[in-house]
């Protein structure tokens, strides 16, 4: 991680640095804005921060979420049906930041394109956001986003996957800033019984080509899995399990799971 006076580390990057200094992985929690309502989702994100999430991934509901499994699909469909708008994500980012955590926005690319890449970046920066996670944008197509991110000092988080070749790992990680999002498995978001060995292997291969922190997402749902992934990753990203907890048990269930996951990332200390 390098920094200059002109481009100081983002809040998210500083959080990852602090967690590393504490000898543990960071807990990154995903929730979509607008589920169960805009106000309810923001309240849930703030509660998640209080319960131990170091970083919040603010999801923007999209009509065609091709990287998401059933749990997040249903939540984001409900959010859209209730009238959730893209700008609601910026309000959520502001709330998370005010609560003392770093916020990244996770969004499908067409929503950024439609708003205008430059405008989206400016609004995200103004809300205190650390950057964007882009599940359907590869660096090869990202010229305008990279320029806007540079101009607004935002992190750009691209994904790598178990299928990534060494060449693709280099392309993806050299375009990243803040951290690298490593997909633990080939597939879409959703809880899984086990987080396979593919996750550790992709992290290892990613570390071979970058100094950036590597956070692992897809499939982590409980304390034991969080502890397991925390052994080898800089951050443990949890989405579907938190969304399900919020949907089924409201904020108390969300807080309880967050506390367990926060304990998990501390057990797995490296």
């Amino acid at each position: 991680m390098t920094t200059t006076a002109a481009h100081p580390l983002s809040p998210g990057a500083r959080t990852l640095q602090r967690c590393r200094a504490e000898g543990r992985a960071a807990l990154v929690g995903y929730l979509p804005v607008g589920f169960p309502s805009v106000a309810g989702s923001i309240e849930a994100m703030v509660a998640m921060v209080a319960a131990g999430a170091d970083i919040v991934e603010v999801g923007v509901p999209y009509s065609d979420p091709l990287m998401d499994g059933p749990v997040i699909q249903r939540a984001t469909e409900a959010a859209l049906a209730a009238g959730t708008r893209v700008e609601d994500a910026f309000a959520a980012v502001r709330a998370v930041t005010d609560a003392g955590a770093a916020a990244y926005v996770m969004t499908y690319w067409n929503l950024v394109l439609r708003r205008g890449v430059e405008r989206f970046a400016a609004e995200l920066a103004a809300a205190g956001g650390s950057g964007l996670i882009t599940p359907d944008l590869i660096p090869d197509e990202a010229a305008r986003w990279l320029a806007a991110a540079q101009a607004h000092n935002l992190d750009r988080v691209f994904l790598v996957a178990p299928s990534s070749t060494p060449e693709r790992l280099t392309i993806a990680t050299s375009a990243c800033r803040g951290f690298v999002y490593a997909a633990s498995t080939m597939g879409v978001t959703g809880t899984r019984e086990t987080v396979g060995s593919a996750a550790e292997a992709v992290v290892e291969r990613t570390r071979a080509v970058t100094e950036l922190p590597v956070c692992v997402g897809l499939g982590v749902s409980n304390q034991a899995q969080a502890a397991d992934v925390a052994r080898f990753a800089d951050g443990v990203i949890v989405g579907s399990a938190l969304v399900r907890a919020l949907g089924e048990g409201g904020i108390p269930a969300l807080e309880a799971l967050t506390r367990q996951l926060a304990a998990g990332v501390r057990e797995g200390g490296r």
């Binding site: 091709l66 990287m67 690319w109 067409n110 599940p135 359907d136 944008l137 590869i138 090869d140 197509e141 691209f158 994904l159 790598v160 996957a161 178990p162 299928s163 990534s164 070749t165 693709r168 993806a172 997909a183 080939m186």
Partner: peptide
């Protein structure tokens, strides 16, 4: 045109 898909599909 282009390729607006998850990185996981790029090798395929």
């Amino acid at each position: 045109g282009g390729r607006y898909v998850p990185e996981a599909l790029i090798p395929a």
